[in-house]
């Protein structure tokens, strides 16, 4: 109770807008006010510009006037010479950290698109769709592996010693990878093979990404991405060539199964969330 006692002062000051009386302000300005009284002025000044201006003027006309004028000059000089307010928004820096990581994997998205387009041109328009849909789902996991961890992130050793260097950073990076992949691949799918193809790869792509993260909690993301990519390509091969496999794996009937798999990956990831607190194994 006692330690909470002083807090009502600022609140009351705000509510009733009782400003600092003139004699108190003068005593505060020349430093003769008693401690306890000065405290309530202190807290009032935190939020009251009118009293701040009054007391500042009083101090300026007192003994500290020359000093204040000198500091004013020095501040303005430093402001003119030095760097001014910069952009230090931390989330912006976090986003940028992914930007500089691997332009390479953005390139790999574009390369995949180019390959799919080229194959469709070579083999006739209908061939483009399965090839694109066979390759598109593995791009996000590959991007994640290249954007996080010991092999993708030069500052990973530093990140690993921070509270956010684990799952929070991984999810931030994953979000960025998806933010690049989803529009690019969907647009390409739409152009190459119509509206249906634009979204058909999306759920499998999310599942493969989720599987990479979940598996990565044991093995590290780069190994997980390799394993997941290999498994997907193997599945495509086992079901026959893309022309046969893709309609099978990506058919509307298969979508609920993919959705269930995505949910399972999310649950697994939640269960394993603290596993990313440790540096990835080499």
């Amino acid at each position: 109770m006692l330690n909470r006692r002083p807090t009502p002062a600022p609140r009351r000051a705000e509510r009733t807008v009782r400003h600092v009386p003139d004699d108190t302000a003068a005593a505060y300005a020349d430093g003769t006010l008693a401690d306890s009284a000065a405290w309530s002025v202190d807290t009032h000044l935190d939020s009251c510009t009118a009293c701040a201006i009054r007391i500042s003027a009083l101090v300026r006309t007192g003994g500290a006037g020359p000093l204040l004028a000198g500091v004013r000059e020095a501040v303005l000089e430093a402001a003119a010479a030095g760097p001014r307010a910069g952009r230090t928004l931390p989330w912006r820096a976090a986003l940028q950290s992914a930007r500089v990581l691997r332009p390479a994997w953005v390139g790999s998205v574009l390369l995949t698109l180019a390959v799919a387009v080229a194959l469709s041109r070579l083999g006739g328009a209908p061939e483009g769709r399965p090839w694109l849909l066979a390759l598109a789902p593995v791009l996000p996991p590959v991007g994640v592996a290249l954007a996080y961890g010991r092999y993708g992130d030069p500052a990973h050793e530093l990140a690993a010693s921070t509270p956010s260097g684990g799952l929070r950073l991984l999810l931030t990076r994953t979000g960025l990878v998806l933010a690049v992949c989803v529009p690019l691949l969907s647009a390409a799918g739409g152009v190459l093979a119509g509206a249906g193809a634009a979204v058909a790869w999306l759920l499998p792509g999310l599942v493969l990404t989720g599987a990479t993260l979940a598996l990565g909690s044991w093995t590290g993301c780069h190994r997980a991405a390799v394993a997941v990519t290999a498994a997907w390509l193997l599945a495509v091969a086992l079901c026959g060539l893309p022309a046969v496999a893709v309609p099978l794996l990506l058919s509307p009937a298969a979508q609920p199964a993919w959705a269930a798999a995505a949910a399972a990956c999310a649950c697994l990831l939640i269960l394993r969330r603290t596993a990313f607190d440790h540096l990835e194994r080499p």
């Binding site: 912006r92 950290s97 030069p154």
Partner: peptide
């Protein structure tokens, strides 16, 4: 390990975000 393309301020702010 750091990001050579970052400014000093960006990098220190990024680490502040992580911390």
């Amino acid at each position: 390990g750091h990001y050579p393309g970052f400014t000093v301020r960006e990098f220190v702010a990024y680490m502040a975000w992580l911390k």
